[in-house]
Write a protein that binds this DNA or RNA. Structure first.
Ligand SMILES: NC(=O)c1ccc[n+]([C@@H]2O[C@H](COP(=O)([O-])OP(=O)(O)OC[C@H]3O[C@@H](n4cnc5c(N)ncnc54)[C@H](O)[C@@H]3O)[C@@H](O)[C@H]2O)c1
Ligand SMILES: NC(=O)c1ccc[n+]([C@@H]2O[C@H](COP(=O)([O-])OP(=O)(O)OC[C@H]3O[C@@H](n4cnc5c(N)ncnc54)[C@H](O)[C@@H]3O)[C@@H](O)[C@H]2O)c1
Lengths: 230, 230
DNA sequence: CCCACTTTGTGCGTGCTTTCACAAGCACGT
DNA sequence: ACGTGCTTGTGAAAGCACGCACAAAGTGGG
């Protein structure tokens, strides 16, 4: 049993950096809308709510796209980050579970403002199947495999009750979808090579409660910073 | 080294641990519903999708609540985690922006399954104000301060368009709310001592896209693990 | 009472993240 | 051409987080 090189540093952009790139991208787009042509790391970091050294190091992972003494060209940087994130291509998204949340997601216009296209809506309830939501017909969950194939779905969104989520996830995987966004409050079990991310309202509230209680108790400044980012 | 310095471990549970406690809690509740009385770190870790050593270390921050050779008593551990997270008290939540998302949130039954009570819904649109959503009357945003005061709101949820989010956040802060959950895709600026957390669908999708592209490109196993947890 | 067995709690090495601090690089004015 | 001033890109240090591996602590059988 040889423990072989756990050295996947290859072209690796740190995960923490990847998670911040979309934030930078949004800040840059806001600047662009306002007509700004170039921006310093200091200013962009301010807009993104991070430390400027962190911003510079993050961007340095993509390449040297800044000009010393000047800053970064907004348009060029937007392009580079978009390319790195894979937003220059189109991503086809399928949403399963067209209930309260699924409908909100389907109706959400500025979906990703770029690159993401909702290709299909699926549900199991006969009452829901066949209806039109956000200009799309809700298809029956049984046609998931077909829909994935014909629409070229590459990202699956799960908005079903917790009990159904694992089943839906497995079917997504079976159908070849390797990126899943899960809104159901369960731990999904998927094979290696499949990427699952979760969004969990309840967890966020509980974390807020923890900090709030901490603040109320000893009232030492035990919590992180108070100045958090979005 | 010194083995037993009387170390009151009160201060400082690592942030990473805090973020996982709600996941453990949910797994424990599922076990309890199934009638399980005790559970080993191995089993609980499996249910929570984490490494068992990590689970044990996380729990050790709360105290020594396990029994060697046996495991953890489910009910007792649920109580301890709940207490640590502040779920033994009630939290009053106000949601601002009763659009697609706000309505979904308001109608979401298993809100936190414990501790969180939606106390008020607020909106600026005359069309929406006055309507009844999830058995609550939608109030006008102008009464935010009054509502916070009379209902004892301690957590504010922002589900307005991006452009309105900062204004709403400031009013929350002004009214004394120090915990904010933000769904709008903007970086909120708040004073120290105010805790803001964000939920951002678009960012999650972009992170998924990044990994998906990475997988498609070099196809070396450059991404983290593929086996992610929920 | 002792021993075999199970499982916790944690010391420790490793690698990732953040932050500081500054040399290097570029623009621009003279 | 060259100095001045500003901003980037990055070593280096410090701080966290993770997970292995094992001693300590408890259980149960003989
Ligand atoms: N509504 C919210 O604000 C909110 C917030 C956080 C988390 N969540 C989670 O999101 C999920 C959806 O919440 P919701 O409020 O929209 O619930 P919902 O009950 O309104 O909708 C669930 C939908 O999923 C469909 N469904 C059930 N089983 C299915 C299956 N096997 N295949 C396909 N479709 C199936 C149902 O027919 C229904 O239309 C839940 O897991 C919930 O815990 C919701
Ligand atoms: N719908 C989704 O699935 C989704 C997903 C991710 C993020 N978001 C974000 O969540 C937010 C809400 O999305 P939505 O789809 O519900 O939008 P929406 O337009 O349906 O609803 C927004 C609501 O906020 C109200 N509002 C506007 N300004 C206000 C103010 N100053 N005070 C009080 N209320 C105000 C509007 O009247 C409206 O009812 C947006 O920022 C959006 O980007 C939505």
């Amino acid at each position: 049993m040889t423990t072989r090189p756990p050295r996947p540093r290859e072209r690796g952009i740190p995960e923490a950096t990847v998670a911040r790139l979309p934030v930078y991208l949004r800040a840059l787009q806001a600047l662009q809308d306002r007509g700004t042509a170039t921006v310093s790391s200091e200013a962009l970091a301010g807009a993104a709510g991070v430390n400027s050294a962190k911003l510079r190091k993050d961007l340095s992972h993509l390449g040297s796209y800044g000009t010393r003494g000047v800053g970064y060209e907004v348009e060029y940087l937007i392009y580079q980050i978009s390319r790195e994130l894979g937003l220059t291509q189109d991503w086809s998204v399928a949403i399963v579970g067209i209930g309260n949340l699924g409908r909100a997601l389907a109706n959400y216009g500025g979906f990703g403002t770029r690159g993401f296209r909702i290709a299909a809506l699926l549900d199991a309830d006969p009452e829901v199947v066949g209806r039109s939501v956000a200009s799309l017909d809700v298809r029956h969950i049984d046609s998931l495999e077909e829909v994935v194939r014909t629409k070229g779905v590459s990202i699956g969104v799960i908005a079903t009750p917790a009990g159904s989520a694992q089943g839906v996830a497995s079917r997504f995987v079976e159908a070849g979808v390797t990126s899943i966004l899960n809104f159901a409050p369960v731990v999904l079990n998927v094979p290696d090579g499949v990427d699952v991310r979760k969004v969990d309202l309840s967890i966020e509230l509980q974390i807020l409660a923890f900090h709030a209680q901490r603040r109320a108790d000893g009232d030492g400044q035990t919590h992180r910073s108070g100045l958090e980012v979005t």
